[in-house]
Each structure stands twice: as structure tokens, then as C-alpha cells.
Design a protein around this nucleic acid. Sequence first.
DNA 1: AGACCTCCCCAGAGATTTGCCTCAGAGAGT
DNA 2: ACTCTCTGAGGCAAATCTCTGGGGAGGTCT
Lengths: 229, 229
Amino acid sequence: MAKKKILIVEDERKISEVVKSYLEMEGFTAVIAETGNEALQRIKEDFDLIILDLMLPDIDGETICSSIREFSDIPIIMLTAKSSEEERIKGLGIGADDYVVKPFSPRELVARVKALLRRTRRDEKKVLSFNKGLLIIETTSMEVKKDGRIVTLTPTEFKILLLLAENPQKVFTRLQIVNTVQGYDFEGYDRVIDAHIKNIRRKIEDNPQKPLFIKTVYGTGYKFIGIPD
Amino acid sequence: MAKKKILIVEDERKISEVVKSYLEMEGFTAVIAETGNEALQRIKEDFDLIILDLMLPDIDGETICSSIREFSDIPIIMLTAKSSEEERIKGLGIGADDYVVKPFSPRELVARVKALLRRTRRDEKKVLSFNKGLLIIETTSMEVKKDGRIVTLTPTEFKILLLLAENPQKVFTRLQIVNTVQGYDFEGYDRVIDAHIKNIRRKIEDNPQKPLFIKTVYGTGYKFIGIPD
DNA sequence: AGACCTCCCCAGAGATTTGCCTCAGAGAGT
DNA sequence: ACTCTCTGAGGCAAATCTCTGGGGAGGTCT
């Protein structure tokens, strides 16, 4: 699973920095926006979740929240100082998915982030097709079709192939691949990846010596070079 | 599909109005009852789902829930204020199908409404037939026919089979299956699913070792691989 | 009591990792 | 430009670890 990107919209540095580091400790990528305008600009980068302070120097959080909702379903967690129930519901009524009352514990916030991501994880049904349908990767059925024939990959092999195929041309180091596949704090022999790559090639390449899809980048790692249809 | 009618039993206007508008935005018809008595009267109109606050001015939600259950198994979602009540609802068999802790996000509530309707829909009579009639699943009678012979599945087994069979080829994790079968976010031992799958296979597969219908996806979960007629 | 669901344990199947050896590519020295 | 050397990559097979499936005990609701 790819790293989740989270946008923190918060003007108080002290708070945003703490939140950022907690999120990063948990393996998320966190970006800070200090003003409403900045937030609205950056929102175009595709984040997986937004943490939004209700009180901002320029635009207020409610307005931002509504604007975001006009074009996106991205999960939003509100940070608010008020705690009366009406305020909460009101906040949630404008389109936030959850709220946290200040002062809050970073741990709790992280827990809610995780919970919300789990809840809203929409089934990413995706079909990747390369080289005129020669190689087809279907995420829903976890199947890979090579030239029409179904090829059975193991879970790890599937994850690696998916990671590479989702980012054609991009070079991944063995370490990056290990991290994505196994989780973030894995201490391991990164040559494991070689073994998996070999097995994947054996299954999807006509001639593993001259791979059409997964190419070795000497001294660095691997990259996927199929042409998306 | 006809518009689904939902009854909201909630005394706080602010909350019920927000919920109502969210539901209507999603294409539901929503009706508000502000007291328990009002709810019990209106219940006769045939609603497809009830959202029921646990705290009401006259009768408490628990009692209402039980009364409803005496004559109907309409889906009920409970609204509760404290997470301590959460425990009770979970443990005590009040008869609710799901519950949401206040303050909640209207979007989440809507999501749960949809999930619950999906899960309990038994109105649409549907017959699923696979592999030239070798396996037939009838939703109305909750019957499964294997090669002409009627096979008796338990309610849980039936729900699991239906979930899988409605989405051929799609891989479901054990957690997804548990959620669909038991309720929204049920914390449980997901190996339970293994046991159910085993029992279903024993009933519908000629050779459970080489299943024709429910296939194991190693490291992930299960998928149904019958070919629809 | 009966039916059903949940959970636990064990054994076997399957997947992953490791070690070792061979082969290929990059860079330096001639 | 050629060859030598060094390091990185590929291949294989055994060891290890994880996951699944079967049986069955215990609990709960009817």
C-alpha cells in the first residue's frame, strides 16, 4: 500500500509541527499549509486526508471545508476549540467527517486519522493495461493477465508489480520496494527483492533475460517500462 | 429502485434537520419523529430503515427498539451519546443492527445507512445462477440449490455466499466479509470466516479440496469464481 | 436439547527468505 | 580500445516462516 498523504491546515507552528512528526512516525507523509489560501492551492495535489483548523488567519475553516466539498470527497478532520455539541454537529454538517477538540492529544488525532482512512477507503477498482493489453493487472480480483492467460502471483509479487506498474518509468530502489511491500520498519536483506523480481519475470516475461516490463537499473533498483493503453 | 423511506427519531431539531437534508441529498425520503410516541405511531407506514436516538423525552430508545422488534425486523441504526452506551448496545441484544456514537458525521451516518440497506436488502427477489444452473441462489427463499438438490445454509453462511456470489471474481478480505455480515465495524476474530467458508464448501462443493465456487486467495481472503448464466 | 456461531489447536500447504555460486556490467589501468 | 578486477545482479535450492483447513470444544440464543 502506498504512503498516505495528509495535508495539515493550521497556523500555529507548534501544533502543526507536532502533528506532522507524529503522523510521519506512523508512516504518513504530512504537508503543512498555514493559511486558508495556501490550503486551497495545495489541495490540488492529491492528498488522502485533510486536517483542517477551524480558526485560520484569512479564511475560516468552514468556508474552506465547503469549497473543498464542491469538488472532492476527500476525508476531512476538523480541529476546533469549541466543544458544545451543536458546534460539533454544525461542523460535521458542513461536510467534515470527524472533528477533534483542542487541546487534543496527537495520539488521539493519529488514531482518528487511521480510523477515518479505514472507513473511507473506497474500493479502488483499478485495471492497468499495458502494451495493447498484453499485460493486464486487475486490483479487484488480484489477477494478472499475460496475453489473455491468467497468471497467478503471490501476494508479495502482486504488491511489487502493482507498485512498479502504477509508476511507469520511475526507478525504485530495493529499499523503497521492501518498505512498501513489508511495512515501514522492516530490517532486511534487500536482496529479497531480487528473488521476487526473478519470480515475477518468470511469470510475466516471455524472455526473462530481455524483460519487456520490469527492467533492471544497474546499481539502483528496478523500473517498470510498459506503455499504458 | 424505488426511493427508500427513512424514519429519523430524534428530539434535537438541529441534528435531525442536518441528517434529513443529507439523506435527501442522497436520494432518500426522510421523515422526522420527535418523540417516542410519534415514532411508534408512524412506524406503521412502511419505512425501509429507522434511525433511532437512544435518548428521547418520553420513552427511551431501547424500549422503542424492542417494541418495534416484536412485529418487524426493519433495519435500525441507534444513535448514542456516550461510548459507554456503545458497550451496552454491542453486548445487550437490543436488536439494533448498527449504532453511531454522537457527535457523528452526517456523511458517516449516510454511509452506514447505505451499508445497512445493502446488507439487509431482501426485498428485491433475485435468483443467481452459476455454471449452467449447477448452483442456484435464491434471495427470497434464502435457498441454495446445488445440482437441483436444496442445500440448507445457516443465515450467516447464506449472507457470506451471497456477498461473494454477487461479486464474482472480486476478492474479499476476511475483514470485509465480517463487516458485511456482522455490522459495520465489528471487532472480531476474522478467522471465524474460515470456519464459515469451510462449512459452505462442505455443503456446495463436490470436493472441498478443489473448490469450484469459492476460491482461497492466499494471504488475502476469498473470491467466488462461478460463471453466471 | 438443538442449532449456530465463535474460537482454539494442530498439521500440511504454500510463500518468503537466505546462502551460495555463477554471470554480467562498470570503471581503471595499460 | 582491450582486458582485468570488483561489485552488483540472477538463479537455484534448502530452511524458515506464515497461512489455511479440518476437527472439535465451549458458549449463546431459542
